[in-house]
Amino acid sequence: MIENKTDIKSGSNLEKLLRSGQFAVTAELGPPRGADRSVIEKKAALLKGYGDAFNITDCQTAVVRMSSIAAGRIVLDAGLEPIIQMTCRDRNRIAIQSDLLGAAALGAKNLLCLTGDHQKFGDHPMAKGVFDIDSIQLIQMVKILRDEKKFQSGQELKASEPRFFIGAAENPFADPFKFRAIRLAKKIAAGADFIQTQIIYNVKRFKEWMKMVTDMGLHEKTFILAGVAPLKSAGMAKHMKHNVPGMDVPDEVMDRMTAASAVKKGKEEGIRICLEVIEQIRELKGIAGVHIMAVEWEDAVPEIVQQARLYPRPMV
């Protein structure tokens, strides 16, 4: 049973909250494209109290930004709990494990394991992608480090082990559709304690996926946080639909954003749609929380959390 409180793996706030059976809220905090810590401190001040833990992205879309681990420590100093994102694009297994030890030593307790966006999308498309391991192998590596105190090579970790509450992503909107629940099962078997899904705009397809997931009993083996994100404008919706891999923005959402943008009410409509999605999925069987990705629009988060009646956040 995942609700077993004695099963605590990392002792993170997010873990305790989820294991206590409460509905969790996570949000995204993107590190800056510079060395200025005050940018993070400002975002942290804005988000404080409006989520249980905050994803610190790892050079998202393959664009150079401040290290997720360093930014995570700054977030921790500001009194928020970080979820360190870790991709396989820029580091081999040696560098990843080294960073895991460092992140744990700096106080990080949540880790989201990703393969990472291809370097082609970023600001250094000429870079050599690493991809020594994939996200599923990364999850397994983090779990074995934690639970068996062994490095990926099989060598024993003789000092303190990094203890993370292990997260993974899954995209119900990618293909082949039937494989998407199997892939989730693989991630859980590899050691994913919690899942954050791709941004949901197509609620119908998300429900179909959740049905497969619950039929397989996967929701009993991990905590699933549904990903949501407010759209800002018709332009952003278009960009999401056509340029962001693995995104599914249905025509109905496109139409609503186009109409609203025409009368300069894009932001309001975007938040409204986001709230509607939250409303439709929060009661679904197997949903343990929401993950709000307001990329470079962090100030939308407090409004969404409040309006969704998810504020104040419970103390654990």
């Binding site: 396989c88 694009r89 393969t115 990472g116 966006d117 291809h118 082609k120 992608g129 991809f131 994939d134 996200s135 599923i136 192998q137 992503a169 899954e170 995209n171 909107f173 990618a174 293909d175 082949p176 494989f179 199997i182 892939r183 693989k186 791709q198 891999p245 693995g246």
Partner: peptide
Amino acid sequence: CAKSLLNGPCGGSQNG
């Protein structure tokens, strides 16, 4: 596979 994945398609695989 652009990322040399070994455990199945990534989250960016759409419409083949």
